[in-house]
């Protein structure tokens, strides 16, 4: 029962966050200069036509009214249609304004639905890699505070956090893909194409994980229950695996939840570099094309995922450490 009221409360809070994010993005997009209708209709369209289209689409109404109308559709599960993308592929932006070959415009929900799984795959592999890297470097560091594994962890995390993701992506592509031919890099044609972008993301994610793991593990090793474990005759390996790491994983888990939006920012750039057909690439293109409905849809979906992941993280944390309250 307790868990149900926890879920209800968190979901309610989450809805408020999603609503605020939508409002923020919606207002921001309309306040900054730049007319999307100009992009849709093409550069040569007469002013009168642009005004006509804009009025027909409701883009000349006051922002709060536009926002309420939009949210009314969102509640019914309709995220609207892209301004520039047709349902059948190529972008319509820039073509002449009276081009009759332009078909129906793509649904925002479909566009997100096509790209989201790709990005989840990339993010999943990246998080797995980051956890492996952090464990390999962070656990020895946490077990030997002040000695060389600890210092190594400190230096590795300082260097990793200093590698700009786009530059690392370019250099690794040049080395591993072009010169050595070990891994494919650009575009997508199978799972192997995920590895290089995921590694770049993992390098970006791991410094904070390494530091948290090292710090929390070092302090947990000072706890009485670790010393008592040895008295109880447990092997060191068992103490570390079952007791120390289990406790150290809670702050790590919380961190993963918090880092989600950072991961998303990284995904954006990495997908752009590697031309990986995911949500990040879609976002960059949507922003550059002033595709309002698409940007808003992506913002709503990502903030909903953010809320969901943080609820899941809190649930998982209470399962690992029952002392935590909902």
């Amino acid at each position: 029962m307790e868990i149900l009221s926890f879920l209800a409360r968190r979901i309610a809070q989450g809805l408020v966050i999603v609503f605020l994010v939508s409002g923020l993005i919606f207002t921001l997009l309309r306040v900054v200069p730049g007319d999307p209708v100009r992009l849709m209709a093409g550069g040569m369209a007469p002013e009168a036509l642009i005004n006509e289209i804009a009025t027909k689409m409701g883009l000349r109404d006051p922002i709060p009214i536009q926002f309420m109308r939009y949210m009314g559709h969102v509640v019914r599960g309709d995220l609207g249609e892209s301004f520039v993308r047709p349902a059948n592929g190529a972008s319509t932006g820039g073509s002449s304004f009276d081009d009759s070959t332009r078909g129906a415009r793509a649904k925002v929900l479909d566009l997100i639905g096509e790209t989201l799984p790709m990005t989840l795959q990339l993010a999943g592999v990246a998080v797995a890699m980051a956890l492996v890297i952090s464990a390999l470097i962070g656990i020895p560091g946490g077990l030997a505070p002040g000695r060389w594994p600890d210092r190594l962890a400190f230096y590795v995390s300082s260097v990793f956090i200093s590698l700009p993701n786009f530059w690392l992506g370019i250099v690794l592509t040049l080395l591993l893909s072009v010169k050595l031919g070990w891994l494919p890099a650009i575009g997508y044609g199978g799972f192997a194409y995920t590895l290089l972008p995921a590694f770049v993301l993992a390098v970006e994610l791991s410094p904070v994980l390494i530091r948290t793991l090292t710090g929390s593990l070092a302090s947990i090793m000072q706890e009485p229950f670790i010393a008592v474990g040895a008295v109880r005759g447990l092997s060191r390996r068992r103490i570390i695996a079952n007791h120390a790491l289990r406790n150290a994983s809670v702050p790590l888990l919380n961190l993963l939840g918090v880092q989600f939006s950072g991961l998303l920012g990284g995904v954006l750039i990495v997908e752009y570099i590697f031309d990986y057909p995911g949500l990040g690439l879609l976002t960059i293109n949507a922003v550059l094309q002033r595709d309002f409905p698409l940007i808003q849809g992506i913002a709503i979906v990502t903030s909903a995922i953010f809320v969901f992941i943080n609820i899941a993280v809190d649930l998982a944390a209470t399962m690992i450490d029952p002392r935590l309250e909902y």
Binding site: I17, L24, L28, G265, L268, V287, T302, S303, V307
Partner: peptide
């Protein structure tokens, strides 16, 4: 709300 939007999206949207 602001922490749940990646800042890079905000930055691109405005600077774009």
């Amino acid at each position: 709300a602001q922490l749940s939007i990646p800042m890079i999206i905000l930055a691109i949207a405005v600077l774009g």
